[in-house]
Structures are given as C-alpha cells and as structure tokens.
C-alpha cells in the first residue's frame, strides 16, 4: 500500500479550541498538512497558539470545531493506537520526567509499551551517551537543572525511535555547545530514519537546524504564511509576527539594498564564502 494518503502524517482542518479557563484558539487559514519525513517549524508570537496546536496533534486537546488526523487516526480518541510511534517534548519539562532516576525515566515509555527490559536498557544508555548526559543516569529528576531536564525529556522521546517527533521549544535553555550537538544529532537521526519532526522555537538562529519549512502564526492563531525557512525570511517581513530574522538574513538584505547581488542563505559560513569570493573578484 503505497498510496498518497499513506504519506500524510498529520493533517489539521480549521480547528478551534475553547479552553475552560476562558482562552480560545482557532487555527485556521492555511491547511496544515505534514507528510512523512518533513521537518516543520511553527513560529509566532507568545500566546498565538503554537503549544495549543501541538497539544491537538498529541491528542491532549479535543477540538471544539474541526478535525485532526495523525498517523491515520483521530489522536484525541485513538491515541492508544499511535502513541508508541510518537515522541513528545513538552514546553514545561518539570512534570514530564516521571521515572525514579534519569535512566528509569528515559526507559519509562518503552517499558510501558512492552519492550524488553534488556533492550530498553541498552538503548537508554546509548541515547544518554549520544546526548552527552550519560553521567546523569543515576541522578534524580527533581535535582536536575532546567537544561539537563530538557535533555532528559528529549532522550525519553528519542528512545522510542518515533515516526513523529513533536517538540515544543526543545532547545530552550540549552547552552550553545549542547544545542549544536543536539541539533546535529537530530539532523543525523532525520537522515537515518526519515522521522517527521514538528517543533516550535523563538530562536530564529536555530530554526533552520530544526526544520526545512515553517508555518507562521498570527497573534490570533491563524496560519498565515508557509514556506521553506529561507523563503520565510527572505520573501516576507515577519516583524508584525514578532519575529526577527537571523543575522545572516539581515546582513544579506542590507547588502542587497546597497545593490550587491548576493544569493540568499541562512548559513553564516556560506555567506562569508560568498562575500570572500566577491571581494577576491573585485581585487582581481
């Protein structure tokens, strides 16, 4: 069965959710359809509804209106069928860590899904090593620092080798070197396993590490713009969405305004190479 619908991992149609606490978020506008292997970022101002959107995908919220389909089922009612295929990192990781020790916590979900203890243990050690937090394995979750907690939460999601990875600000509060390591790891994982990734972030410098394309959400939750990360920054003015483009984009835009024809890129190294080439050709 290799028909086209098989490849659709997440599909949302005009959903609205009314929180009992009074807030109401409607995610309308552009269709939100994600196919296998895509890496998508959801960007937008505080309170626009990014986390709400992810909670719909995870089946934690039942839409008041509209439909949600994830891996072929309605996640709010049939999450049991798909949950072992989904890894999630929530925005608030304090309550996400449940196991008695870090090692137990990382092994928590696979053991719940009935995977064997010895294999789970081997995988847990492996993932802890790959995320560079092996030394934390015997620590208790409630004594970890904020960044350490997020890394453990990430390990607990990745150990499942999920088909879909849903991450709400996964690199928030993580130091620069670890960010590099984790995003490299995620990129490698994506290349190896074709995992579909949906994430949110406020850090425009790392969006392109986490995603190939993105949705921009307006203050009231509407999906207004969709495109590759490069398109988003070079073809649109995102200031009205409280988003500031990364430094490379700002530099290129300034140079372009001064009449310098320089091809768009988000990568600082690529940009410097292009500038150097330009300089050299001027000198010659």
């Amino acid at each position: 069965m290799n028909n086209k619908n098989d490849k659709i991992i997440v599909s949302l149609k005009c959903i609205r959710h009314a929180y009992t606490g009074g807030g109401s978020v409607s995610t309308g506008g552009l269709p939100f359809t994600i196919t296998r292997g895509q890496r998508v970022a959801v960007l937008g101002p505080n309170g626009s509804g990014k986390s709400t959107l992810l909670r719909h995908i995870l089946g934690l919220l039942k839409p008041t209106e509209g439909t949600v389909e994830v891996l072929g089922v309605n996640p709010a009612s049939q999450y049991m069928k798909i949950r072992s295929r989904i890894g999630a990192v929530m925005q608030n990781t304090d309550e996400q860590l449940i196991g008695p020790t870090v090692l137990d916590d990382v092994a928590f979900a696979p053991l719940n899904f009935g995977r064997s203890a010895s294999e789970t243990y081997r995988k847990a050690i492996d993932i802890l090593k790959r995320l560079n937090i092996y030394e934390l394995k015997d620590r208790l979750p409630h004594y970890l620092s904020g960044g350490e907690r997020r890394k453990v939460a990430l390990a607990g999601a990745l150990i499942l080798e999920p088909d879909l990875l849903v991450m709400d600000e996964p690199l928030e509060g993580i130091d620069h070197a670890s960010r590099r390591e984790i995003s490299n790891f995620l990129q490698k994982l994506h290349a190896e396993t074709e995992v579909t990734m949906i994430s949110t972030t406020h850090d425009m410098d790392i969006v392109s590490d986490l995603a190939d394309c993105g949705y921009v959400m307006n203050q009231s939750g509407g999906l207004e713009i969709y495109g590759t990360i490069e398109e988003l920054f070079f073809n649109h003015d995102l200031h009205s969405f409280n988003l500031a483009p990364p430094a490379t984009v700002r530099i290129i835009k300034i140079l372009q305004r001064h009449g310098l024809a320089i091809a768009p890129t988000l990568n600082a190294e690529v940009l410097s190479n292009r500038l150097l080439e330009l300089l050299h050709s001027e000198i010659r």
């Binding site: 934690l60 949950r83 989904i86 309550e95 789970t120």
Partner: peptide
C-alpha cells in the same frame, strides 16, 4: 494536569519500572 498529560503520552499503566 500536565503530569496526567505526560503519563498519558508516555503510556503509563499503573506500573513504574525501576531498572
């Protein structure tokens, strides 16, 4: 509430495993 959500997401069914 968040804890309950996480328990649901991570497949908890009345058993905490201790390796």
């Amino acid at each position: 509430q968040r804890m309950a959500e996480n328990l649901k997401l991570r497949g908890f069914h009345n058993h905490i495993y201790y390796l």
